[in-house]
Simulated assay, not measured.
Amino acid sequence: MSRSTPFNTILRRAGLPAVAIILMGFFAYSAVLGPNGVLVYGDYKRQLETKKAELAKLEAQRAQLRNRVALLKQSGADPDMVDELTRKKLNVVHPDEVIVTLD
């Protein structure tokens, strides 16, 4: 017959609550300081605002490109747009013309 010492008895009784407290501490730490914790929330909000501003800028650029594509459709291309693009790409200019860039 083995007799348990008071130390072993205390260890057996306190083992499960100690493990539970350690797990709760880990989850509390993760909730506050983890990668998706409360303290990181403000940084996520700042990143979201930055990305929204970037998205608005890209959508405006996309609308401009969509408009230029619509002007170049085969069914009814805008002659001025076609002339501008041809001269820009082919670098064709008459000696008596003056080029004014708007960029």
Results as ranks from 00 to 15, higher is better:
Ile22Asn: 09
Ile22Asp: 03
Val92Trp: 13
Thr101Met: 11
Arg62Lys: 14
Asn36Pro: 01
Lys51Cys: 14
Leu71Met: 08
Phe7Gly: 04
Ser4Lys: 09
Thr9Gln: 05
Arg66Phe: 14
Val100Arg: 06
Val40Pro: 01
Gln47Tyr: 04
Tyr29Glu: 00
Leu11Asp: 06
Asn67Asp: 02
Thr50Trp: 07
Ala18Ser: 06
Gln64Pro: 04
Thr5Gly: 14
Ala14Asp: 12
Lys52Gly: 00
Arg3Ser: 13
Asn36Met: 03
Lys52Tyr: 07
Lys57Leu: 02
Ala70Thr: 05
Arg62Cys: 12
Leu39Arg: 02
Tyr41Pro: 05
Gly34His: 00
Asn67His: 14
Glu54Gly: 10
Val32Pro: 00
Tyr29Leu: 01
Leu65Cys: 14
Arg13Asp: 14
Lys45Leu: 11
Phe27Lys: 01
Val93Glu: 08
Ser4Gly: 08
Leu90Asp: 11
Gly34Cys: 03
Ile10Thr: 12
Phe26Pro: 07
Ala60Gly: 05
Tyr29Asp: 05
Ile22Pro: 00
Gly37Ala: 04
Arg87Met: 15
Thr5Met: 12
Met81Ile: 08
Tyr41Val: 04
Val82Trp: 11
Arg12His: 07
Arg66Trp: 06
Glu84Met: 06
Leu33Arg: 05
Asn8Glu: 10
Ser2Lys: 11
Lys89Pro: 10
Lys73Asp: 14
Leu85Arg: 13
Ala70Asn: 13
Lys52His: 04
Ile22Phe: 00
Leu72Thr: 05
Glu54Ser: 04
Gly76Ser: 15
Gly34Thr: 00
Val100Asn: 06
Lys73Thr: 09
Val69Asn: 03
Asp83Gln: 06
Gly37Ile: 09
Ser30Ile: 00
Arg13Glu: 12
Asn8Thr: 08
Val38His: 10
Asp83Pro: 03
Ser4Trp: 11
Asn91Arg: 08
Asp43Cys: 14
Ala14Ser: 09
Ala18Thr: 02
Thr9Ile: 13
Arg66Val: 10
Lys89Ile: 15
Phe7Arg: 13
Lys88Ile: 02
Ser30Gln: 05
Leu58Trp: 08
Ala18Phe: 03
Gly37His: 01
Val69Pro: 09
Arg13Trp: 10
Ser75Trp: 10
Ala63His: 12
Leu58Ile: 13
Met24Glu: 11
Leu23Lys: 00
Pro6Phe: 10
Ala28Cys: 04
Leu90Glu: 07
Thr5Tyr: 15
Ala77Ser: 12
Ala70Lys: 07
Arg13Val: 06
Lys52Thr: 01
Lys45Asp: 08
Gly37Glu: 03
Glu84Ser: 01
Ala56Met: 10
Leu23Phe: 00
Glu97Met: 03
Pro35Thr: 09
Arg68Leu: 15
Leu71Gln: 02
Lys52Met: 07
Pro17Gly: 07
Arg62Asp: 02
Ala60Met: 08
Phe7Ile: 09
Ile22Arg: 02
Ala63Cys: 04
Glu54Met: 12
Lys73Ser: 07
Gly42Gln: 12
Ala20Thr: 00
Leu65Pro: 03
Val82Asn: 11
Leu90Lys: 08
Arg46His: 11
Arg13Met: 11
Ala14Cys: 09
Lys73Tyr: 01
Val98Arg: 05
